[in-house]
Write a protein that binds this DNA or RNA. Structure first.
Lengths: 243, 243
DNA sequence: CGAGGGTTTGAATTAGATCAACTCTCGTGG
DNA sequence: CCACGAGAGTTGATCTAATTCAAACCCTCG
């Protein structure tokens, strides 16, 4: 047992006790001491659906760690065309911008809670604890891999393949989204469309078709059960036979 | 003047002298001492166009620093559909995979030279020199921003907007690609198509149209001059007026 | 000069978008 | 309890940007 540290540094900080994201976020991969330092510079914030806590183009003053709820990451064109570059779930770390301004907006699509860290303070902490920086590099690398996968989807997959890929990737998020075997979609058809580079109508038709083909069932429009995972995986990988 | 280091650690390593990428790569942001350590674990490799030095799915045993030439980063679907997720230019750092296998292939499209680092050795160096890790996080963050921009392009931009965006991004790569005011394309129409989520024919027609509209001139099929940068920027940003 | 990549151009086709109507769900308030 | 309204979702008819199919047309290099 290690007793080099003062009493008050044993165990996690009070504010982190009972945090829904503790087990799944960057916080899980660092020691109590680092966690105390992190907690000391964090502000916990709650927000309602629709709240936009990062705005594309604004100065990138903060980092965020999402501890509850789901957000969408949005890029806009001047005429209103919208691309969702990703969704942030419980445990996700947001705001990794090197440049001085954010490259996307982040909007709550459910009631959310997050820890907000001033950029400068976190920067200082990172310099002090290389393990933290290391962990962030891992996070960034993983996101990069996901981004490349999404480019493949947007550039080369059909609507069916996109929807199948999306449902499987949601299903793989074991830490959220599920209720029993069912996936509870936190996002609307419009969000799905803007994430998959399709229109609302095409998403709706495609979901309807997967349902008719009995690859999925859709008890409610926001609830989806994967009935034939193998079939969906073939589809998502680009092996969809006929039509 | 700093003379804490042994004589042989003053100045850059011999192998880095005259390296075309010295000024533009990660190497530029570290000290001579780190550079010597890096050089000690590096193998310099030359390869011809077509050579595939990273293969999607293979164990990720090495990192690469490209010092000459251009590569394409490729993801494939089983039926041969291809998405190029990016191009690597002189100075670019490749192979940032956390997982045990590469998420894409990398293929030379020009004669290339690169430094190859065994993953384990570099990992050890990173632990020793946090500045290096920090630099890599910066690199990864920048790539992430670029990836998000590319998702917007693939998901929501028209063919004209995609080609205009691509030409401008090439033009911004001041460290390569240019001969005078002209851009010398290192890649084929097929590569452009697979990067932009289009077909060869659409790329060709779109370039022809931009030429007819006098936004660009195309003295040879691999050479492009931007005539109306502002017009192209409007287009790329999604402000393209009529048709 | 002829062969083989890469590129261009034209005509026909189509996946998905657009336009338009209708339905479902759910919360509010009379 | 039911009428109402608003937002989200579905479904159908039509349209179109980009693809596909097809046929030249370069260059470059042996």
């Amino acid at each position: 047992m290690n007793n080099r540290f003062p009493q008050n540094f044993e165990g996690p900080p009070a504010v982190c006790e009972g945090c829904d994201a503790r087990a799944v976020s960057v916080c899980s991969s660092i020691g109590d001491r680092e966690l105390h330092r992190l907690a000391a510079i964090a502000t916990v914030v709650d927000a309602d659906p629709g709240f936009s806590f990062i705005t594309e183009g604004d100065p990138a003053d903060h980092f965020y760690n999402l501890t509850r709820g789901t957000v969408r990451l949005v890029k806009l064109l001047p005429d209103g065309r919208r691309q969702i570059t990703g969704f942030g779930y419980r445990g996700d770390f947001l705001g990794l911008a090197v440049s001085s301004s954010y490259a996307f907006s982040a909007e709550a699509i459910e009631p959310v809670r997050f820890c907000r860290f001033p950029r400068r303070s976190l920067r200082r902490l990172l310099d002090e604890y290389p393990a933290l920086e290391k962990r962030l590099l891992e996070v960034a690398s993983n996101e990069l891999v996901a981004a490349q996968e999404q480019m493949l989807l947007l550039g080369r997959k059909t609507a069916r393949e996109r929807v199948a890929s999306f449902l499987l990737s949601l299903d793989a998020k074991t830490t959220c989204v599920h209720r029993g075997p069912a996936i509870i979609l936190p996002m609307t058809r419009g969000d799905m469309a803007d994430y998959l580079g399709l229109t609302i109508e095409t998403v709706s038709r495609t979901v309807a078709r997967l349902k008719k083909e009995e690859l999925i069932s859709v008890p409610r429009s926001d609830t989806i059960v994967l009935l034939d995972r193998e079939g969906l995986e073939d589809l998502a990988a680009g092996n969809g036979e006929g039509s």
